[in-house]
Amino acid sequence: MGESMELNYIDIKKEFVNCLEKHELIVLSTCLKDKVKSRMMCFVNDELVIYLLTGKRSNKCKQIEGNDNVSLCIDNIQIEGKAKIIGSPMDENNTEISKIFKSRHSAYYKRFAHFKVATFIEIRCEYLKQWKFENGRDYYYCLNVVKEKAEKHT
C-alpha cells in the first residue's frame, strides 16, 4: 500500500452513482456535542446528492442543525457530506424529489410524507471512498467531489 494514481473523475463518479442507484437503504451518521448516532434510512439520489425523508423534530435533524457534517455508508462505500433540512415533501420546491421518493419508496412515502413534521434532508456528497479487491490485491478509489479529483490507492 502507499501508491496513488489519478483516474478519470467522470468515470469514477459514474461508478459511484451507479452503486447508489442499486440500493434503497443507507446508513446515516450525525454528530453533535461528541454524541454520534447512526441509523438506517430510505434514500433517493440525484447523481451525488442524496435525499432522506424524516421528521423535523428527530434527533438527526437536531444534530444536523448544530453540525451539518454527516457520514454515510452503503456496502463498502464511505461517504462524507454536508447536510441541510430542505422542507416538507408537500413544498412546491420539493416536487421533483417527492416524485422520485414516491416512485422508489411508495409505501413509506404514502405513510409519512403528509405529516406536518415530515421533511427532506439533502446531503451533498463531498468525498467518497470504496474498497475493492481484484487479482488477490486490495485497493480503494477516492472521489473528491469538491476538487473534482479521482484516485486509485494501492
Rank of each mutant, 00 (worst) to 15 (best):
E92Q: 03
S106D: 13
F120E: 04
F101Q: 01
G66Y: 12
E96N: 07
E92L: 04
N93F: 01
C73A: 15
S98M: 05
K84L: 02
G136L: 06
K147L: 10
M90I: 11
R124C: 09
F101W: 00
G136Q: 05
C142A: 10
I77G: 04
I79C: 04
K110V: 00
I77F: 06
N69A: 11
Y140H: 13
I86W: 00
C125I: 06
M90N: 14
A118Q: 05
V70Y: 09
D68M: 13
F101D: 00
K102L: 04
K132F: 14
K102F: 05
V117I: 03
K129D: 07
E122D: 10
G136A: 01
E65T: 09
K99P: 00
E122C: 10
N69Q: 15
L128R: 08
A118I: 00
K147H: 12
S88Y: 00
C142V: 14
N144V: 08
A150L: 00
D138Y: 13
Y141D: 12
L72T: 06
T95Q: 10
G81S: 09
C142G: 06
S98L: 04
S71E: 14
I77S: 00
F120D: 04
D68C: 12
K110R: 05
K82A: 09
V117E: 12
E122P: 01
D75A: 14
I74A: 05
S88V: 00
D68E: 10
S98N: 04
W131A: 13
K149A: 11
S98T: 04
N76L: 10
H105A: 01
Y139T: 11
N69D: 12
I123M: 01
I77M: 09
G136S: 04
F115V: 00
D91C: 01
L143V: 02
E126Y: 00
V145I: 15
V145W: 03
E148T: 14
Y139L: 14
E65W: 13
D68Y: 07
H114I: 11
Y109S: 06
I79E: 06
E134M: 12
R104G: 03
S103T: 07
Y139P: 08
I121H: 02
A113N: 04
E126M: 11
E126V: 07
I100W: 02
G87K: 01
F120C: 05
T119P: 03
Y139K: 08
N144Q: 12
S103R: 01
D68W: 13
D75P: 03
K116P: 10
N69L: 11
V117T: 09
N135H: 13
E65G: 11
D91G: 02
L72K: 01
